[in-house]
């Protein structure tokens, strides 16, 4: 498995014991990344959402039941299943920081990458995006609006990375050595519970560096070797067990 390594590796550590499933991250993400609202969002598998909060259950009956919520952004795999399959290089993992890019004007909308991604992190613009009249005035200038027919996904608010670098340049700092907190995603910023921590997984000065090494940390579907850059933490064994497929006789770490 060839895993792309970078000097800087942006990543997340999401504490599932702190997430209460309020959805602030999802709304913040939509507003930040210019996703269009939709009148009927019932069909969850046809609704655009770069970040989805899944509900996890320990599958025990009342009163032994326990619940957990799992925010799922793009996992920014080190060995992305989606990148190599794209016929037109519309998605790539090549930039310092290790964010999997998605270039809308290049995408032809074949959806092969969606078939490849087991995290369902990729979404297709089934129709043209429509904002209620006037609401387009609240679009940010940071992210281009996507037409129908292209695939999109969470970019770790890549535009904030660009801005952080520009700010560093303007202030005479090294744009390659951003401090912890100089660049955070919109979801991590919004979370009132501080469940999402964002930073450089390779930099010991960043909190995620240490969190990703916690005994409670593991990644989604690790055994598929996608080598993701999003870590999930939970002190609950049953939660950790649901982060990957385990046969009955297999133990889970932590």
């Amino acid at each position: 498995m060839e895993i792309k390594e970078f000097k800087v590796k942006w990543g997340m550590a999401i504490d599932l014991d702190k997430c209460t499933g309020c959805g602030a991250c999802m709304v913040a993400c939509q507003a930040e990344n210019n996703l269009a609202p939709i009148a009927d969002a019932s069909n969850k598998i046809k609704v655009m959402n770069w970040l989805v909060v899944y509900e996890l259950s320990n599958k025990k009956p009342f009163p032994e039941h326990d619940v957990a919520y799992l925010p799922r952004p793009c996992q920014q795999c080190g060995h992305p299943p989606c990148v190599s399959v794209c016929p037109v290089v519309a998605t790539d993992k090549n930039e310092e920081g290790g964010i999997v890019s998605q270039i809308y004007p290049r995408c032809i909308g074949c959806r092969y990458c969606m078939a490849a991604c087991p995290y369902h992190a990729r979404y297709f613009n089934w129709l043209d995006p429509v904002w209620p009249e006037g609401m387009e005035k609240a679009l940010t200038p940071d992210v281009s609006v996507r037409p129908r027919g292209v695939v999109e996904k969470c970019s770790f608010c890549h535009h904030r990375f660009m801005k952080a670098k520009d700010k560093a340049i303007a202030e005479g700092r090294d744009p390659e050595a951003l401090a912890d907190g100089d660049y955070v995603t919109s979801c991590a910023e919004a979370c009132p519970n501080g469940a999402i921590v964002f930073g450089d997984l390779n930099n010991p000065d960043h909190q995620v560096y240490h969190l990703s090494r916690s005994k409670y940390a593991s990644r989604l579907l690790e055994r598929l070797h996608a080598n993701t850059q999003v870590y999930y933490l939970s002190r609950r064994e049953w939660v950790r067990r649901q982060l990957d497929n385990y046969l009955d006789n297999e133990k889970v770490k932590g």
Partner: peptide, 22 residues
């Protein structure tokens, strides 16, 4: 089936040699 048929020619022009689809 492709979302952007007008761009279908990208498959030849911007081909990704690693993709089976190419």
């Amino acid at each position: 089936d492709v979302g952007q048929p007008v761009r279908a020619w990208f498959g030849y022009w911007h081909a990704n040699v690693h993709s089976m689809l190419t």
